[in-house]
């Protein structure tokens, strides 16, 4: 059962959705929340190519950006703590100075689940967008991660779709989800996408059998489709009105993903519903 959730705070609307969803999860599971705001001082103060006479201007610029980042962090923590108080959920804010990916990966070891917005930009002082942090977390996280898109009313809904391909990552994701308490009171579906319908059915059935000892009944789906894996899963999720999708993240090597593409990437980029991922 989830007892502690780490929420990565940041100013985007998807981060806002992530906070509200995390509060919902905490209320459901009786968990505590920790709101993490990051001041990316290493990247702000990193060396830069500059002309003669630029050092003092860089120093002044760095100080101003760090001060601005600290102010944002303090504001986000204050807002997070107020929201949690209003929702009656125990919570604590935390400000960390460091590179975002490293800071989040270090903090997440102390929590059962980490939640962040899909479009969160933790390097907001120096970069327009921050896919790098998100990808680093999804590749290196040792604990489950929930990625939340920008939605008006974030909620996990009453139906969950588990995408199962038999990989170690998928097994870990399925097992940790089963133990999290999030399956309670929800309808669970396990789906495998494959060109061979029989093979897909057998694989999905194995997934269902893994949930059985945890007392979680689930339905089997084999998906044979001309669409890509990502689009097939989306189509099934829409059909089932799923509010959450569970899957293993980056099950294959980076080299293979480079040539064949990554289902995780595609799902994270396009999913209209929250994703529960584990590497």
């Amino acid at each position: 059962m989830i007892k502690s959730v780490l929420v990565c705070l940041e100013g985007s609307s998807s981060a806002e959705s992530a906070t509200r969803l995390a509060i919902d999860v905490a209320r459901t599971c009786g968990a505590r929340l920790a709101g993490l705001a990051i001041v990316d001082e290493p990247d702000i103060r990193a060396g830069a190519a500059m002309g003669i006479g630029g050092s003092s201007f860089k120093h002044e610029r760095d100080d101003a950006l760090v001060a601005d980042a600290r102010k944002h962090a303090a504001d986000w923590i204050a807002l997070f703590e107020r929201r949690c108080r209003e929702a009656g959920v125990p919570a604590q804010g935390l400000e960390v100075v460091g590179r975002p990916a490293d800071s989040i990966l270090e903090e997440m070891d102390g929590h059962d689940l980490t939640v962040f917005g899909r479009d969160a930009n933790f390097r907001f002082e120096t970069e327009r967008e921050d896919l790098q942090t998100r990808d680093a977390i999804l590749h290196r996280a040792t604990r489950p991660v929930m990625v939340v898109p920008d939605v008006a009313e974030p909620a996990l809904g009453s139906t969950v779709l588990i995408a199962y391909d038999g990989s170690n990552a998928a097994k870990r994701a399925l097992t940790s989800f089963g133990n999290s308490g999030l399956a309670q009171g929800r309808t669970i579906h396990v789906a495998t996408v494959d060109d061979n319908g029989a093979r897909a059915w057998e694989m999905a059935n194995r997934g269902v059998q893994m949930l059985a000892p945890l007392g979680i009944p689930a339905s089997v789906h084999n998906v044979v489709s001309l669409l890509s894996n990502v689009d097939s899963l989306f189509a099934l999720a829409t059909e089932l009105k799923a509010g959450l999708m569970v899957m293993g993240a980056f099950a294959h090597s980076r080299l293979r993903n480079l040539f064949a593409g990554s289902a995780t990437h595609g799902l994270v980029e396009k999913s209209p519903i929250p994703l529960y991922l584990q590497h």
Partner: peptide, 9 residues
């Protein structure tokens, strides 16, 4: 940015 002093400033 490094070609002339005021650029980086």
């Amino acid at each position: 940015y490094i070609g002339n002093g005021p650029n980086f400033m």
